[in-house]
Design a protein around this nucleic acid. Structure first.
Length: 295
DNA sequence: CTCCAGGGATGAT
DNA sequence: ATCATCCATGGA
């Protein structure tokens, strides 16, 4: 009885959910796939997850059942069918919608999401994942789950008391100064990420854009992935290419501003979901073209 | 409005 | 083994 393990295996019913696609869609960067399992942290909890059809198996590293935490993190309560129905009915959107079945926009911890998207600027997904790993290993807290070692994401205070030099050693380059500056603003209380939960979309965008290293694209990612602002429509080069090619193939002088205005009205109240589906589909199509290039 | 630094992985030669 | 490419932000 004394030796009884505190670890728990939990099963969660998760219909309309694709764990692998969700974790590989460029919204989160620290999950590691080993065999059929995905290892990672949710806040301070280390877990692994395994999907079998509509069942999600979850192993917690310490104790306590975590179904509520998991359901919230992966937004299993989002009415996905309704959301997909709200997308515009046009050819590229229809392809993306059927390709991305089960892809959900997660609810990530705000600071962790903000910090990673500051690090993401001018980087490709593979490299962002390495930066995430290095920051965690160097500044995070160690957690063990079975024989695996995972690290939590360090607090703003922990980053604030590090140095630009140390951060540069995590391959951040010029982003080190931005991450440090933002961590200091949050740690000192000048900016309170939790308090902004009640701000309007416009106010939140404005607040986020005041932080060093945060422009419109990063701010919109954080709004979408951590503040559940499902209208937020981040426009990066992938999405810009899709919008230009699919909706304005012959217009040479579509400015960035006009594209943004179009996106905000065309994709509706769940524009962020539509963006994520277009983004993921475009990336996967490009990946496929590497082995079978056109012509 | 345009131009450009910036860093490290990844793909091409 | 080098060379080109990918890319958000911020400042000139």
């Amino acid at each position: 009885m004394a030796k009884k393990s505190l670890k728990k295996l939990t099963e969660i019913v998760a219909p309309d959910f694709d764990l692998a696609m969700t974790l590989d869609s460029g919204q989160v960067f620290h999950w590691e796939k080993i065999g059929n399992r995905f290892y990672g942290t949710i806040g301070n909890h280390a877990v692994w997850l395994e999907q079998h059809g509509r069942i999600l198996k979850v192993r917690d590293g310490k104790s306590s059942a975590l179904s509520g935490l998991i359901e919230n993190y992966f937004a299993l309560d989002h009415p996905l069918a309704e959301i997909c129905d709200s997308f515009p009915d046009d050819p590229i959107m229809n392809v993306a919608r059927s390709y991305c079945h089960g892809l959900r926009i997660m609810r990530q911890p705000k600071w962790e999401c903000l910090a990673m998207f500051i690090c993401s600027s001018m980087k490709q997904v593979a490299h962002i994942r390495q930066i995430s790993k290095k920051i965690r290993e160097r500044f995070g807290e160690r957690r063990k789950i079975e024989h695996h070692e995972l690290f939590t994401f360090p607090s703003p205070g922990r980053i604030a008391q590090s140095s630009e030099k140390e951060l540069r050693e995590c391959a951040l380059g010029y982003r080190a100064k931005n991450l440090l500056g933002t961590a200091q603003l949050i740690d000192s209380g000048v900016v309170n990420l939790e308090e902004e939960s009640t701000s309007s979309d416009d106010d939140l965008l404005g607040k986020l854009c005041q932080l060093p290293g945060v422009g419109a694209k990063v701010a919109n990612c954080v709004m979408l992935f951590a503040y559940e602002r499902l209208r937020a429509f981040p426009i990066d080069v992938w999405i810009e290419r899709v919008l230009r090619a699919q909706y304005f193939p012959r217009k040479r002088n579509m400015t960035a501003g006009r594209l943004r205005a179009f996106a905000e009205t065309h994709f509706g109240e769940h524009g962020g979901y539509a963006q994520q589906y277009l983004f993921h589909h475009a990336r996967m199509a490009a990946r496929a073209n590497l082995s079978a290039p056109p012509r």
